[in-house]
């Protein structure tokens, strides 16, 4: 019984020490040391919030780069993150991938199958992956140039300006943030 009383007391003390003090310190750091008060990084255009930099959005318009497929909720649902959880050889899953490949070939008639990088036809782990591979961006440039009536080179230039290199040029993959890329497209045409 005496031990139980000690347990109760120590737990309550740790609640104050950890659940309140530790949290408060980090909360204050976030509030004063970051530009967005500890919230997710928001992107606004003309004072209108158009997205969170790190969260994928769905893009169907041919004038925009498409994001990776999403299995979060009913698609790109940032309140219910998650992947497909399909096994590599699941037949149902392979049929879905085939459908995605055909859809891309239809909207990009100039492509061969082996031009298509895997990230554009597979769902990410979170369903909210904001990035695509640089190959995934480059294969879309011709379609976007046609839809926007601009030269393909100008689209490729925007990709090269937006692409994020490995950290210090040494660590990790190369990627392109789709939302930032699409905003850059819009800005260039204004």
């Amino acid at each position: 019984m005496k031990e139980l009383l000690k347990s109760i007391k120590i737990t309550l003390i740790l609640c104050v020490f950890l659940s309140i003090s530790y949290i408060s310190i980090l909360w204050l750091v976030a509030r004063f040391a970051t530009s967005n008060n500890g919230n997710a990084e928001i992107i606004a255009i003309d004072n209108k919030i158009v997205g969170v930099a790190n969260i994928a959005q769905e893009f169907k318009d041919p004038r925009y780069f498409m994001s990776r497929p999403s299995c979060a909720g009913s698609g790109y649902d940032a309140t219910s993150s998650g992947g497909s959880n399909k096994a590599p050889a699941n037949k149902e899953y392979l049929a879905i991938v085939e459908k995605r490949i055909l859809a891309i070939l239809k909207t990009h008639p100039y492509l061969e199958r082996d031009d298509i990088p895997a990230d554009l036809v597979t769902a990410s782990g979170s369903g909210l992956d904001p990035d695509i591979s640089i190959e995934g961006a480059l294969i879309q440039s011709k379609r976007i140039a046609e839809a926007r009536n601009v030269s393909e080179n100008s689209v490729i230039r925007i990709i090269n300006e937006t692409v994020e290199k490995p950290y210090l040029g040494l660590l990790g993959p190369i990627k392109v943030n789709v939302l930032k890329l699409n905003i850059a497209l819009d800005t260039a045409q204004k």
């Binding site: 399909k86 392979l94 490949i101 082996d114 895997a118 036809v121 597979t122 782990g125 990790g172 993959p173």
Partner: peptide, 28 residues
């Protein structure tokens, strides 16, 4: 990469991407 996707002849130069994030990559 996933051999089943390999046989659908798409490019898996970054590995098996299902359930993975581009910013992290298959190796990490």
């Amino acid at each position: 990469g996933n051999p089943k996707l390999e046989s659908m002849s798409i490019s898996q130069s970054h590995g098996a991407m299902e359930g993975k994030e581009v910013r992290i990559g298959t190796v990490a």
